[in-house]
Design a protein around this nucleic acid. Structure first.
Lengths: 205, 205
DNA sequence: GAGAAAAAACCGACCAGTTGGTATAGTAAA
DNA sequence: TTTACTATACCAACTGGTCGGTTTTTTCTC
């Protein structure tokens, strides 16, 4: 359903190793082994390690981007749309896809972050193309005079959370993880004093 | 002025390499060379690479911790003291040490972050001791019922910024870097308007 | 459709250089 | 004598990468 062609499989294997065994274990031999492919097979698809990493960046980057684009398209709100969509793609929607498996995978951003760290660790130059891309999104977010900076701060906080996760300072299943998501989401809600926590109260539905 | 004993010199050399040449270049040979020490000398102080990394974590961790403690002691305020001190140690105090060199080094947190990333990259287990330490600080911050979560979010945003810096998505000298600092600091100020432009809009919260 | 040819996909032994780490002989000072 | 190194040689394991060969799939021909 998600990935079948060997390139994607290789990218996923590489990321799995990086996350599980540490970035230094993300060697060509290990990646090939993890993907159950011979080293020659790997090298056929990616002549150099940089090529592998570039492919990872693209693969997981597109994943995260697609996710964000979809969320933004779904969002009917006007203000804080970026931040809300961003948060929704990381923490889920709280109700709807609480049990939905992961064709909408919440780890998309997490994966891309790890891919980027792995990339920089191997070769700082390889993310160059991504830099411009991120800068563009960032500028568009900031172009919103009202909430631009506030949304950027939310973005940064999430990225900080991703860093914590990478460092093992927090795990997705920790209650705090969800609490942080809730707190951030609250910032994207229309300015109200009342907390619309539980709508299941009145007869209105 | 700051460090004289060879262990500290070695730690600094290792970090310098990690930052300048990438994590993969942080090899024992390179570190020894950078510190102008023979490899034997390095191995005398740190029998294994993990020992080196543990020392780095301790060295830069203590650095950042000291910095934070001092800032907090200096801060007369009551609310948001942690976040304010934290921000001040990263972005400076805006006026005072704008030209002060760096015996108060603003890169302290940055350095520790890099050390932690390097540590995890080499061996995910090596940060274990730090985990507890961070958790303790985090819990103390969160124990503040009023502003705990808000301060944690500020912390996370700064860490996100550090990650961006590591990834080359932003540089310290970029105007945006300072802007983010300013925006975050504003959140730690005593209750005023979030937006100084619109004077009134009803209740505040 | 059968079968040959060609191209694409893949294997795994091999290579030169590097890695973390060891060993050892010597030196300078406290 | 102990501590704190320098300098160098060395090691097995591993690194990214090459290469000749094999299998599988597609394409072409009849």
């Amino acid at each position: 359903m998600k990935a079948k062609n060997p390139r994607d499989l290789l990218c996923e294997a590489a990321l799995r190793i990086a996350g599980r065994d540490g970035l230094l274990s993300m060697t060509l031999d290990n990646v090939a082994k993890e993907a159950q492919v011979s080293k020659g097979g790997l090298m056929y698809h990616f002549p150099t390690k940089d090529d592998l990493i570039r492919a990872m960046l693209e693969y997981f980057g597109d994943d995260a981007e697609q996710m964000l684009i979809r969320k933004m398209a779904e969002d009917p709100g006007a203000r804080f749309r970026f931040a809300r969509s961003f948060l929704s793609s990381v923490f889920g929607d709280g109700e709807e896809d609480r049990d939905a498996p992961d064709h909408l995978k919440r780890e998309a951003l997490e994966s891309m972050m790890l891919a980027m760290i792995a990339a920089v660790a191997n070769n700082p130059n390889v993310i160059e193309p991504l830099r411009g891309k991120v800068a563009k999104i960032r500028d568009r977010v900031l172009s919103d005079r009202r909430d631009g900076m506030e949304q950027l701060l939310i973005w940064l906080a999430v990225d900080g959370l991703m860093l914590w996760q990478f460092l093992g300072l927090i795990r997705r299943q920790d209650p705090l993880f969800a609490d942080i998501g809730t707190a951030l989401k609250k910032k994207t809600e229309p300015k109200k004093k009342t907390k619309p926590k539980r709508p299941s109260k009145g007869g209105v539905a």
